[in-house]
Design a protein around this nucleic acid. Sequence first.
DNA 1: GCTCTGCATAATAATATAATTATAGAACTG
DNA 2: CAGTTCTATAATTATATTATTATGCAGAGC
Lengths: 115, 115
Amino acid sequence: MLQKSSLEGLSEDFKVLSDKTRLRIIGLLRQRELCVCDLTEVLGISQPGVSQHMRRLKQVGFVRERKGGQWVYYSLNEEHPLLMLILSQWPAVPEDERRLMQTKGCRAPRTQGSE
Amino acid sequence: MLQKSSLEGLSEDFKVLSDKTRLRIIGLLRQRELCVCDLTEVLGISQPGVSQHMRRLKQVGFVRERKGGQWVYYSLNEEHPLLMLILSQWPAVPEDERRLMQTKGCRAPRTQGSE
DNA sequence: GCTCTGCATAATAATATAATTATAGAACTG
DNA sequence: CAGTTCTATAATTATATTATTATGCAGAGC
C-alpha cells in the first residue's frame, strides 16, 4: 500500500494547517518570500522550531524553498489548489505584519560591530 | 480576553478537520443526515467515540443536531463558509458509502425477535 | 584554511489528542 | 412503572505533537 488514500492526504493537509504558528507563517508568506531568520524574529520561536514547521509545510506542498547563498527562502506554492482556496478566507494578523515590517531579518548585512 | 483571535478559530477549525474519522463523518453527512448509531455502524468505532467526534464537529459549527424521538440526527451546516469552500474538494470514500447503503441503522424499527 | 552565520536534524520533555470502558440520563415499549 | 434503547459524559490509557537544547553541515568572508 504505497499509495495514500486521498482521505489520508487531506487529513495531513489539515493537520499541517491546524497549528497557529504555521497559520501565522502562511500569513506572513503572503506578503513576500522569507528566510528562516526572518520568521524566527517575527514569530519569536527558536530557529529549529521554525525549521521544523517549514519542513511540514514543505512536505504537504504548501511552500517551496529556494536557496540563495547562505539563506533559504520560503514562499507559498501558488499551485496548491486547497491552499489557494483557503487563502481567500485568511485572517489578517496585524501584529505579525507590523513586526515583519520592523524586522531587518537577513537583508541587513550585519556591520560587525552592531549587536 | 473573551474573544478568540480569528487565527485561533481557524486553527481550531483545521484541528477538527485533521482527523480522518471526522473527515469520513463529514463525507457521510454529505449523503444525508445521520444518527449516532448509523455512524457507529459505518465507521466501526465505539458509540462514545462517535459522540466525542460529533461534539467537536458541533463546537466549530460544521454540523447541526436535531433531536427526533430517541435519536439525535446530525447534518452538515450548509451555512459554514469554510466548510462549504472545502467540500468542493472533498474526496469520495467509496467503502464508507457502500457501508452506509447496507446499514439499516436506526431506521429499521427492530422487530424484537431479530438479532 | 579558519571562523562565523544560517539552516537542518536528533534527542528530549511537556502537552494534547483519540480510543476504550464504565456510567448516567432521556425517550420509547409494554 | 419497569425494562430497553440511544446518546452523552467521565475516567483512563496509548499515541502524537510541539517546543527546547545540543550538534553538525554548508556557504561567505577574511
